[in-house]
């Protein structure tokens, strides 16, 4: 059995009286594509935000790669190897596509102010490496011909790809995608699916929040279903699809 990369233990989060997450426990194994689905308002994005340090959970916690994840600041989560994209795309709009990905390299590089001021050899070499790696990643997500365009001028599908490239630039062990197929047409979804399959093949574990049930069921190794902030079931797609509670949650009782 493969080792668990991420383990969530009884994670809870409430906003005032609203219990957004009720003791959610799940585990993501290394190298799999893990789907997280549920109706609107089920707590999927809240779970994401707790995991990536944007929210501090009110109860429970995470174990990542064998060690407790004390993600009280998002940059620490990125440092540990958890990268994410956002449901409503958050790019650096007035920077070029290439620069967006180069920013993603920040956490794995170290040139400081004095390096920048004196332009010493190490800084120059690092800068060239950052640029090269960023170009490679743009090529990987197939938008290298848009490298010098401002991110805000990219098409919707390309922005989604750019966000994934930026997340990959941080060299994550776990890549969290928040509804990457939202608003995409059939062709774009199929391309995205190919991209995610490629990312997994290259050794990155993927956590996928998605509304598109067909995409999730076809792509994911295992799926968890959230409803009203609670975990309904965590299993392989074939089992989840037939589960009575899941059908109820989606279609109404």
């Amino acid at each position: 059995m493969t080792q668990a990369l991420l383990e969530a233990k009884a994670v809870a989060k409430h906003f005032g009286g609203v219990k957004a997450l009720r003791d959610v426990s799940l585990s993501i194994r290394e190298g799999e594509v893990y789907g997280l689905i549920g109706p609107n308002g089920a707590g999927k994005t809240t779970f994401f935000n707790c995991l990536t340090g944007l929210y501090i959970p009110d109860g429970g916690g995470f174990t990542f790669a064998g060690q407790p994840l004390r993600a009280d600041a998002p940059q620490q989560a990125a440092q540990r190897g958890i990268a994410r994209t956002f449901q409503n795309i958050r790019l650096f709009g007035n920077m070029t596509a290439l620069e967006n990905v180069m920013v993603g390299r920040h956490v794995r590089t170290k040139a400081g102010v004095f390096g920048a001021m004196f332009q010493n050899k190490a800084t120059k070499a690092e800068e060239a490496a950052i640029r090269q790696r960023a170009m490679d990643l743009l090529h990987y997500v197939q938008i290298e011909d848009r490298a010098d365009d401002l991110a805000k001028n990219l098409s919707y599908g390309d922005q989604r790809r750019l966000e994934i490239a930026r997340a990959l630039a941080t060299e994550p062990k776990l890549l969290c995608l928040d509804e990457p197929a939202a608003g995409m047409n059939g062709t774009e979804t199929a391309e995205l699916r190919e991209l995610i399959v490629g990312i997994r093949k290259d050794g990155t574990t993927v956590l996928l929040i998605e509304h598109d049930v067909k995409l999730v069921m076809g792509l994911c190794d295992r799926v968890a279903v959230l409803d009203y902030g609670a975990l309904v079931i965590e299993d392989v797609p074939a089992v989840v699809q037939k589960d009575q509670r899941v059908i109820e949650a989606y279609l109404g009782a």
Partner: peptide, 14 residues
């Protein structure tokens, strides 16, 4: 520049 553009996204990339 990233902080200026979107602070939350900047934090999310570390």
């Amino acid at each position: 520049q990233a902080i200026r553009e979107d602070e939350i996204a900047a934090k999310a990339v570390g």
